[in-house]
Amino acid sequence: MKEVEKFNHICSKYSCDVDLQTGKYYVDAKSIMGIFSLDLEQPLTLLVDSDDDIEVTEKFKDFLVK
């Protein structure tokens, strides 16, 4: 729960679109209810509409799986 809140807080700082995808479902990652509507046991894809990939990677590094 705390990790989702931390993730959501980072997302809310962006003025651009920040989405999570799992399979065919997309949700606004700025919406905590949207995040909890996903199966968080499955891998999620983070989509950030930003030109600064390095900054995005740094902000979300604790949540990325390689």
Rank of each mutant, 00 (worst) to 15 (best):
K61N: 07
G34E: 13
N8Y: 08
Q42L: 15
Y25D: 08
V56T: 06
D17K: 13
H9S: 12
F63P: 07
G34W: 08
E58L: 12
K2D: 14
L38N: 14
F63T: 04
D28S: 05
K66V: 08
D49A: 10
K2T: 11
M33I: 14
I35G: 11
A29M: 01
D62A: 15
L47C: 02
D53E: 11
D52F: 06
Y26N: 11
C11E: 04
K6R: 08
S37Q: 12
D19W: 11
E58M: 09
T45F: 09
I10G: 06
G23T: 09
D52S: 09
V4K: 04
C11V: 06
F63I: 00
K2M: 13
E5Q: 15
G34P: 10
I10Y: 01
L20D: 02
S12K: 13
D49F: 01
K2N: 14
S37C: 15
V48K: 01
L44S: 12
K2Q: 15
C11T: 02
S37L: 15
M1N: 13
D49L: 02
V56D: 02
K13R: 10
I54N: 04
T45H: 07
M1C: 11
Y14A: 05
V4F: 08
Y26A: 12
L38F: 13
Y26I: 15
D39I: 10
C11P: 05
T57G: 10
E3L: 09
L46Y: 00
S15T: 11
D51P: 00
F7T: 02
I32R: 02
D17C: 08
F36M: 14
I32P: 01
N8G: 03
L44A: 09
E58V: 09
S50H: 05
L38C: 12
E5L: 14
A29P: 02
E5N: 13
P43M: 12
V27P: 04
G34C: 13
V18A: 06
C16R: 03
Q21P: 01
N8M: 02
I32E: 00
F36S: 10
D51W: 00
L40V: 09
V27L: 14
P43Q: 13
L40K: 04
K24E: 10
G23H: 14
L44P: 08
V56C: 06
V48G: 01
M33W: 10
Y14L: 01
K6N: 08
K13V: 03
E55W: 04
L64F: 06
D53Q: 08
D28I: 00
T57Y: 11
L44T: 13
L64W: 04
T57V: 07
V56M: 03
S12E: 07
K61S: 04
I10H: 05
K24V: 13
I10P: 00
T45V: 14
S37I: 15
E41H: 09
L38A: 12
Q42K: 15
K61W: 11
S50P: 00
Y26C: 12
S12R: 14
L40P: 09
K2R: 15
S15N: 07
V4G: 00
V27N: 03
T57I: 10
K30Y: 10
K59F: 01
